[in-house]
Amino acid sequence: MIQIEENKCDFCGCCVGVCPVDCIEVMESIIEIDDEICIDCDLCVFICPIDVLSSVATATI
């Protein structure tokens, strides 16, 4: 799962450009990731210029 620090985000859309499954939506000052579609590839985490996104291990039961 990807965690977003929304206060840091500049809404540049760089993460959207590399996302292979189009699960990120960036509006003027809103960013949302659809966890149902996300495949945890972390490409968005790598490409973010200002460390807004981080990968969080999903708890397994």
């Binding site: 859309g13 760089c14 450009g17 996302c19 292979p20 189009d22 790598f46 490409i47 973010c48």
Partner: peptide
């Protein structure tokens, strides 16, 4: 629609940028 290029995806085009071909800029 710029680097996001979602319009193309919705129209069935492969617009995703490979990680090595995307520059992370500031």
């Amino acid at each position: 629609d710029g680097v996001e290029s979602r319009v193309g995806r919705w129209g069935g085009l492969r617009t995703q940028v490979k990680l090595k071909d995307m520059e992370s800029g500031i």
